[in-house]
């Protein structure tokens, strides 16, 4: 009986100390992790999407609360006078988890300016081409936000990356999600930019 009690006491103590320690480390690193994600994932995607901006989309970012999460919006003023926004959506169902896609949309024409994969954990050399080789995501450029985006194998118009249909489908899902979010949130975005 004594042995039993000591077993339970030791395990409970150990587990609670560990839980407390982890909670402390978590809250200590939370802000920095956020900054790192911004710096290493979002910044490069935004820079390659907007090559000729007159403002700093990263500095001028603002948040919009949606039902599911806080959406970070990066507004850009382009050299030719038009305005665009970029934000990140996540396509479910990749091989290695959600695929993050930074989508840029022109505010005047409501057309997709472009898209870049930000995060993925797909198979190197196959699914990873969604990020490394921009020819797949460049198919989204110029599509209006009400365009029907689907892979050719799903009776759509987008060419999948060969050998990586699952990845391509997840990226397309992220793009569709961006279209939906944009149509829903456009008034809010315009208000915030003013």
């Amino acid at each position: 009986m004594r042995e039993m009690i000591s077993m339970i006491v030791v395990l409970t103590l150990l587990a609670s100390v560990s839980g407390g320690l982890l909670a402390a480390v978590k809250s200590g690193t939370e802000v920095r992790i956020e900054e790192q994600i911004l710096k290493f994932q979002k910044a490069p995607a935004i820079e390659s999407l907007f090559t000729d901006v007159t403002n700093d989309p990263l500095k001028e970012r603002f948040n919009i609360e949606t039902q599911e999460r806080t959406l970070q919006i990066f507004p850009a003023k382009l050299q030719d006078g038009s305005a665009a926004v970029a934000f990140e959506t996540f396509g479910k169902g990749g091989y290695g988890g959600d695929i993050g896609l930074m989508v840029a949309i022109d505010l005047d024409s409501d057309k997709l300016v472009g898209a870049r994969v930000t995060t993925h954990a797909e198979t190197p050399g196959l699914g990873s081409r969604a990020k490394d080789d921009p020819s797949f995501v460049s198919q989204f450029a110029g599509k209006p936000i009400d365009a029907d985006l689907a892979l050719k194998s799903d009776n759509g118009t987008i060419d999948a990356i060969s050998g990586a249909t699952v990845t391509s489908r997840a990226v397309t899902r992220a793009a569709i999600q961006a279209q939906e979010l944009y149509s829903k949130l456009k008034p809010e975005i315009l208000k915030q930019i003013q």
């Binding site: 150990l14 587990a15 480390v25 978590k26 994600i37």
Partner: peptide
């Protein structure tokens, strides 16, 4: 296992914060 898992999670969080790439 509890001890090891605790330190693994600490490494995970610290790496995210300082060596993200």
């Amino acid at each position: 296992i509890v001890i090891i898992a605790t330190f693994v999670t600490i490494v995970e969080l610290v790496m995210q914060a300082f060596t993200y790439p």
